[in-house]
Design a binder for these strands. Structure first.
Lengths: 154, 154
DNA sequence: CCCTACCTTAGACAGTGTCTAAGTCAACAG
DNA sequence: CTGTTGACTTAGACACTGTCTAAGGTAGGG
């Protein structure tokens, strides 16, 4: 992923400071940030960067296939820099954490032609949902908090 | 589904006119409406129904498991009344149409314990994406329209 | 070093969903 | 049937996420 900038240059992107910091943030921890989180982290490196630029850059990265958009909860989309290796997601219902998992079989095989209703199927998104170890421990200790998803991370 | 009202009564729900029309709308075509579409259709039957009530009622129906929430595109959530029969979704990237499909194997089996990272996995959402027959035909006839997803149905 | 097309910015705007205070009414008791 | 009560509904303000525009800035080629 460290050659993302090189790939962008090959696509004739103008390498502005803003695009560099967005790429740098995506290149950091392999976490799946929301656009707002990416903006906050980018702003820590380049305070004057605007929200619109982050959205623009993310949209362009998605369009050229360097980054994947993941919408797991109907709230903010998350951006997944791991676009070059097929994978699926494991999502915590409580804190929203996402982990990548790698499929052992091609999930497209699970859909027989008879069930495709004439659709041209090109992709499959598989999302496993449950509780991450931390949240499972917390809900066992305090069952009342079970159904109160924390918006912010602990 | 026609006994949804009976099931709600069994749960000690107060059966107001508003809840009846929401149930009635969900009971209609097996389409997956957004909350706003449900509100519009409910308002056709009961003009003074408010948006908040539709959201409240849908939220309660989801909480008790009578209806499923589906978020396919990061925009409005859609509500799926077919909650009593495990199924997956086939989504058209162009027009947004959703069809239910029925899995031949338990998709949870695709995730070996070694890949669960300590998560307590309770559900799996599988979404197949591609083009519906109509949109595939249209994009074959006019490739330029291929990447311009229509927000409204044709 | 200059130019120009592309990029960024601030802020307004739009869509979706949540919350609150006040009024209303379904269900039950008598 | 009528009264009571607490759950339900309402309008509208609010919050969050994402998009758009006009104006100014700047990367990269000459």
């Amino acid at each position: 992923m460290s050659d993302l900038l090189a790939r962008l240059r090959a696509r004739r992107w103008r390498l502005t400071a803003q695009r560099r910091v967005v790429a740098q943030v995506l290149d950091g921890d392999h976490v799946h940030f929301t656009a707002d989180e990416i903006h906050a982290r980018a702003a820590a490196l380049l305070p004057e960067i605007s929200r619109a630029t982050v959205y623009n850059t993310l949209g362009e990265l998605v369009a050229i296939g360097e980054v994947l958009e993941v919408s797991t909860d109907g709230r903010a989309k998350r951006y997944d820099p791991n676009a070059h290796h097929a994978h699926q997601h494991l999502v915590c219902d409580s804190c929203g954490t996402i982990r990548d998992v790698h499929p052992s079989v091609d999930p497209l095989a699970g859909l027989p032609a008879a069930e495709r209703y004439g659709f041209t199927v090109s992709r499959v998104a598989v999302t496993y949902r449950g509780l991450c170890p931390d949240c499972a421990a917390r809900s066992a200790a305090d069952p009342a908090a079970d159904s109160a998803p924390a918006r912010a991370k602990a």
